[in-house]
Amino acid sequence: MWQLRAGGLLGATSVATGAAGAHALGDRDPAYVAIWKTAVQYHQCHALALLATPMAAAPRARLVAGLCFASGTCLFSGSCYAVAWTEDRTYGRPAPVGGLLLIGGWLALALL
């Protein structure tokens, strides 16, 4: 199942970005460090959620939830990483779309 590979990749990259941020963002504005930490937290949580999607009973729920978790994580966490790294909040524009996709993934598991 593709969700297992994608979840594994998201899990590995969440650890890498967490470590990179811990070392590279030490002297930054604490507000941007907090954004980075939030991105890592959502990244890790949804990597685990993506790993669990193959256990969903309905094939449609597996597909929809998996796509929502994968794309939502990239958009939400990715844009938060960009904001924290560049200290330019305009890079955060995709975050709400990513957040809605993450919510959609959870709803797909619950309702489909």
Rank of each mutant, 00 (worst) to 15 (best):
M55C: 06
R89H: 02
V40Y: 00
G72I: 09
T17S: 07
T73V: 10
V83M: 11
L107M: 12
F76W: 13
Y81K: 05
L9T: 13
V64E: 04
A16S: 02
G78Y: 09
W85F: 12
A24C: 08
A47V: 15
T73L: 01
L111I: 15
T73D: 04
P59C: 01
L101S: 01
R93P: 05
M1Q: 14
R89S: 06
L4V: 15
P54N: 03
L101W: 00
S79W: 06
A110C: 13
V40A: 02
P59W: 01
V97L: 15
L63F: 12
H23L: 12
W36T: 05
T73S: 12
L111G: 02
F76S: 10
T73K: 04
G99S: 04
M1Y: 11
G98Q: 07
W2M: 14
A47K: 12
F69S: 07
A70Y: 13
G72M: 07
V40D: 03
G99M: 03
L101Y: 04
L109N: 08
A22E: 08
Q3N: 12
A6V: 15
T38R: 13
Y42K: 02
A31Q: 13
G11A: 15
A108V: 08
A12I: 15
G21N: 01
T17D: 02
G21E: 01
S14K: 08
D88S: 05
A84F: 12
A110M: 13
L107N: 02
A82S: 13
A110D: 09
S79R: 09
G104S: 05
A52P: 08
G92P: 04
R60K: 14
D29P: 09
L10C: 14
F69R: 09
A6N: 12
C74N: 01
L10P: 12
L109I: 14
R62S: 02
G72A: 05
L4R: 15
G78K: 08
T53N: 00
D29H: 05
L9Q: 11
W2A: 05
T90F: 03
A108R: 04
C45N: 07
W2Q: 08
A20I: 12
C45R: 14
L101G: 02
S77M: 02
S14V: 09
A47E: 13
L109F: 11
L50R: 05
A110L: 14
S14E: 13
H23F: 10
V33C: 00
Y91I: 08
S77L: 01
A56H: 11
G99I: 05
A22M: 07
R28V: 14
P94G: 03
R62C: 10
L109S: 11
L75K: 00
P94K: 00
L63P: 01
V33S: 00
L101T: 11
